[in-house]
């Protein structure tokens, strides 16, 4: 939900290069942390979850032109490292299709990838204390998305991009295109104020859908959601 839909040529070179470098470092760590034999075994799952994310990002939901990211779900199913890799793959595919510039793939991966990493960590923490997996998934998604939106705002502030550009992306999702009006000279605090209602709607939708998916999966194939305790599985 927190893609930076910036086209190429807009963001300063320093920042998108920095985004790529940091992403490359995290990917290198991700590959080194997962055993090569284990990674090889999980390639089909990694690829298929990335495909699911691509599909989720291409289907608008009802009258609200909002698409799912499914990055928290990817983190829960794949784990933090493979989840981050899946986010990178998805962003690269989207860039080839003109959905965000190729130069901002690194920054987008950092922002959306944070949802996958946090998704895994928070869900595994909450599921110990919250009886319902669906509720644990919803709480996880809310927190992960709040943090990723904060990260996105941070990137916008640091790179001194005109917030109006990122803001327009939110408005485009929630209003017909012809109603979109250019926004100029928007300060970061004002930017945050304006995106807040859209972020709340987006976070609510993603959280509900993620919770429903987790509930369905736990009912039918619980082993997909990591190593669930046996006692919880019997419940």
């Amino acid at each position: 939900m927190s893609h930076i839909h910036l086209p190429d040529g807009v963001i300063p070179v320093f920042w998108w290069v920095a985004g790529y470098i940091i992403t490359a470092v995290i990917l290198a760590i991700a590959f080194s942390r997962t055993k090569s034999s284990e990674t090889r075994k999980k390639i089909p799952l990694l690829g298929i979850v990335a495909a699911l994310m691509l599909i989720g990002q291409s289907v608008p939901l009802g009258f609200i032109p909002f698409h799912l990211n499914l990055s928290v779900l990817a983190g829960i199913v794949l784990g933090p490292w493979l989840g981050f890799i899946a986010v990178f793959i998805t962003n690269l595919f989207l860039a080839f299709l003109g959905h965000g510039g190729i130069t901002v793939v690194g920054l987008n991966t950092l922002v959306v990838g944070s949802e996958a990493v946090l998704g895994y960590l928070l869900f595994n923490t909450f599921r110990r204390y919250i009886p319902s997996f669906a509720v644990a998934a919803a709480v996880t998604t809310v927190i992960a998305l709040l943090l990723s939106v904060s990260l996105m705002v941070g990137v916008v502030a640091l790179s001194k991009i005109n917030p109006g550009l990122v803001l327009a992306e939110r408005i485009e999702r929630t209003t017909p295109k012809k109603e979109v009006k250019p926004i100029s000279n928007v300060s970061i605090p004002r930017f945050v104020e304006i995106i807040a209602p859209f972020a709340v709607i987006g976070i609510a939708i993603e959280s509900v859908v993620t919770a429903l998916i987790i509930r369905f999966v736990v009912e039918v194939r619980p082993e997909i959601i990591g190593s669930l305790p046996r006692r919880r599985l019997r419940e």
Binding site: P44, L45, G47, I48, V49, A51, L52, I55, G56, V59, L61, G62, F63, I64, L68, L70, L73, V77, I205, V208, V209, A211, L212, I213, I214, R215, F216, V217, V220, R221, I224
Partner: peptide, 23 residues
């Protein structure tokens, strides 16, 4: 939207399970 979300969640959930089996 609520009904759509519920049904979409089930469909994607089914998709996740199918994806797992496919993988």
């Amino acid at each position: 939207i609520v009904k759509n979300l519920g049904n979409t969640g089930r469909i994607i959930g089914h998709g996740v399970i199918h994806a797992w089996e496919l993988s």
